[in-house]
């Protein structure tokens, strides 16, 4: 007998050591997420993947699957709250989708669509965030950073470089770069590093590749993230 969990009444088998997210993804069940990426150590910070496990809220990306768990995922309550969490991310930074190169390929935007987010709901922070255009090949716009730490993890775990870190406390966090000048050009970041390509939003962009795929033909323009997200992650897995 293989072990199973149920998500919204659907039986899902899992292997010992898998998280709820991993078990769900393998079974084709989408759980909204932003800071999670199958190739990196789970972080558990965005809280979008919160599911109800036997009556308690848990982040699916970090919580282990345990035989017999009864999990709620697609409920109105959860999605309403996930929408509010997404709205929090939108008002915290400065996300101006119409002018952003990532529009249509952006997971933050796509999750917003998926959760039927029609406005920002909360008051904007209008935070002052700096842009770093010093690197010859990579541009970083901190206005769009959501602190998922995927670039931090990618640089450390895959590129072996530790180019990025999140500094500061509370609402005053910011992405910092590992160079004496503090500028991106003086770090060891290369254009082919995973860290340069992992950002779920438009905070890290590769220069001179903008709009090669026109708006309207991008990843989330015709399919919602529940479908494309899963396919992408399956193919990422190889």
């Amino acid at each position: 007998m293989s072990k199973t969990i149920t998500i919204d009444s659907k039986m899902i088998p899992f292997q010992e050591g898998q998280t709820i997210m991993e078990a769900a993804t393998a079974a084709g069940v989408y759980i909204p997420h932003l800071c999670h990426h199958p190739e990196f150590t789970p972080h558990g910070s965005c809280k979008l993947c919160t599911v109800n496990v036997n009556g308690r809220g848990c982040t699916a990306c970090t919580y282990p699957a345990i035989d017999g768990q009864e999990i709620l995922n697609e409920t109105k309550e959860l999605n309403d709250d996930r929408r509010k969490i997404t709205q929090m991310l939108f008002v915290e930074g400065n996300h101006l989708c119409p002018g952003c190169e990532k529009s249509g390929n952006c997971q933050l935007q796509a999750v917003g669509y998926y959760l039927n987010m029609l406005d920002n709901h909360f008051a904007h922070f209008f935070a002052r965030r700096d842009l770093d255009a010093s690197h010859p090949d990579v541009l970083i716009d901190r206005n769009r950073c959501i602190f998922c730490t995927l670039c931090v993890r990618a640089s450390r775990e895959k590129d072996g470089k530790d180019v990025f870190a999140i500094s500061g406390r509370g609402i005053n966090k910011q992405l910092v770069f590992n160079s004496e000048s503090g500028q991106l050009k003086d770090t060891g970041l290369g254009v082919n590093d995973q860290a340069a390509h992992i950002c779920p939003t438009g905070a890290i962009l590769i220069k001179r590749t903008g709009f090669t795929v026109p708006i309207g033909e991008r990843r989330f323009d015709h399919n919602d993230i529940a479908e494309t997200g899963l396919e992408q992650e399956h193919s990422d897995h190889g």
Binding site: M88, V91, F125, F147, N172, K173
Partner: peptide, 12 residues
Amino acid sequence: GFCTPCRVGTSL
């Protein structure tokens, strides 16, 4: 500032 609901939520 680690998680969204507290980082953004407490300031909101």
